[in-house]
Measured scan of single mutants.
Amino acid sequence: IEKFKLLAEKVEEIVAKNARAEIDYSDAPDEFRDPLMDTLMTDPVRLPSGTVMDRSIILRHLLNSPTDPFNRQMLTESMLEPVPELKEQIQAWMREKQSSDH
């Protein structure tokens, strides 16, 4: 029984630690959010139409349809242009958020 109590305490400790580690990014500025999924972008790319999306989301879309989801023009992965300035701004915002939450 004592071992179970210790195990339960350890589990509670881990759960509390994980809860502290989770950071809420739901208040991200609109320009940091993917327009299709409304999630925080981690690897922004510009489509030929000028729309900026997260790379993982547009690549997932391209698996089903080789088109720009906003104007239905033909689109391939090679046409995606990285946006390193925005990526750095997002990373800086995330770092600031992490340091203010801890």
Rank of each mutant, 00 (worst) to 15 (best):
I90M: 00
L36R: 01
V52I: 12
L75R: 00
K10M: 10
E81G: 06
A19G: 11
Q98M: 04
N64H: 06
D101Y: 06
D101V: 08
A16V: 09
L80Q: 01
T39A: 04
Y25C: 12
L40R: 01
M94V: 14
G50A: 03
I23R: 10
P48H: 02
K97E: 15
L40H: 13
Q91E: 14
N71C: 00
I23V: 10
W93C: 02
S56C: 08
E88G: 15
L80M: 04
R55H: 05
F70S: 00
S65C: 02
N18A: 08
E85D: 11
E77V: 05
E88K: 09
T42P: 04
D24L: 04
E9A: 15
K17W: 08
H102P: 11
M74T: 13
L75P: 00
E13T: 03
V15G: 09
V11A: 11
E2A: 07
S26V: 15
D30G: 08
Y25H: 09
Y25I: 03
A92P: 02
V83R: 04
V15I: 13
H61K: 03
R55L: 03
V15P: 09
N71R: 00
L6S: 14
V11I: 06
T67I: 03
G50D: 03
S78Y: 07
P66A: 12
L59M: 15
E96R: 04
E9D: 12
K5I: 07
K17E: 14
L63R: 10
S65N: 03
E81A: 10
N64Y: 15
P66C: 07
L59R: 09
H102L: 10
R72Q: 03
K97M: 15
K87Q: 14
G50R: 09
E12Q: 14
D27E: 12
E9N: 03
R72H: 02
T51N: 12
E77D: 07
V11M: 11
P44H: 00
E2P: 03
L36V: 15
N18D: 14
E81S: 14
E22T: 09
V45M: 04
Q91H: 11
N64V: 04
K97L: 04
Q89K: 12
D24V: 07
A8G: 13
H102C: 12
V83I: 14
S99G: 10
Q89E: 07
T42I: 11
S56Y: 05
R72G: 01
A28V: 13
E12H: 07
S26K: 15
L6H: 08
V15E: 13
L7R: 10
L62Q: 01
G50N: 03
M74N: 05
I1R: 09
I90N: 01
I14N: 12
V45G: 01
M41V: 03
I90S: 02
T76P: 03
R60W: 01
L80V: 07
H102A: 06
E85V: 13
W93R: 02
P35L: 06
I23G: 07
P69A: 00
N18H: 09
V45E: 01
V15Q: 15
I57S: 14
A92I: 03
L59P: 01
P35H: 01
R60C: 03
T39M: 04
V15M: 10
K10I: 05
D68V: 00
P66G: 07
E22L: 13
V15D: 09
L36M: 02
E22V: 09
S99P: 12
P29E: 02
L63V: 12
E31K: 08
E22G: 06
D30A: 07
T51S: 13
F32A: 03
W93G: 02
S78A: 13
P35F: 00
F32Y: 11
M94F: 15
P48L: 01
D54G: 03
I1K: 10
D43N: 08
H61D: 01
D43A: 04
G50E: 07
D54A: 00
L47M: 05
E96L: 09
E77K: 07
F70R: 02
R72L: 02
D38G: 03
E81Q: 10
S100P: 12
L47P: 01
K5N: 09
G50S: 06
R20M: 07
S26I: 15
Y25S: 14
F70V: 01
R33E: 02
M79W: 12
D101C: 06
S65Y: 06
I1S: 15
L7V: 07
A19D: 08
E9Q: 08
K5V: 14
V15W: 04
M94K: 11
D30Y: 07
A21E: 14
A21V: 11
I57N: 06
S26H: 11
D54E: 11
I1V: 06
D43S: 03
E9R: 12
N64F: 15
L6D: 12
P84T: 15
W93L: 04
K17N: 12
P35S: 01
E13V: 06
P66T: 05
D38Y: 15
F70C: 00
Q98P: 14
R46N: 02
K3M: 06
P82T: 08
K87T: 10
P66Q: 08
E9V: 07
P66L: 09
A92D: 14
L7P: 08
E22R: 07
V83P: 00
H61N: 01
I58L: 04
H102N: 12
D101H: 06
D54V: 00
L59Q: 09
N71D: 02
A8V: 09
S65P: 00
E85G: 13
P69S: 00
P48T: 03
D54Y: 00
D43V: 03
T51A: 08
A16P: 09
H61Y: 01
L36S: 02
K10V: 14
S100N: 12
R95G: 11
S78I: 05
S78D: 09
E2V: 08
E9W: 05
S100C: 11
R20H: 13
E13D: 13
V52G: 00
A92C: 03
R72N: 01
D68E: 01
K10D: 12
T39V: 02
V15A: 12
I1M: 10
Q73H: 03
R55P: 00
Q89L: 08
K5T: 08
S99I: 09
E22N: 10
M94L: 14
D27N: 09
Y25N: 14
I1L: 07
S78T: 07
Q98H: 12
L7Y: 11
Q89P: 03
A21K: 05
S65A: 04
L6R: 15
A19T: 13
K87M: 14
E12V: 07
M74L: 14
T76S: 09
A8T: 10
F32R: 12
Q91A: 03
D38V: 15
M74K: 12
L47H: 03
S99L: 09
M53L: 15
H102R: 11
R33A: 01
K97H: 12
E2N: 11
R33G: 01
F4L: 13
M53A: 15
S100G: 13
E22A: 06
E96A: 12
M37V: 07
S100V: 12
Y25F: 13
E13A: 12
R60Q: 05
P69R: 00
Q91N: 07
D43G: 01
K17L: 11
I14R: 05
E96D: 10
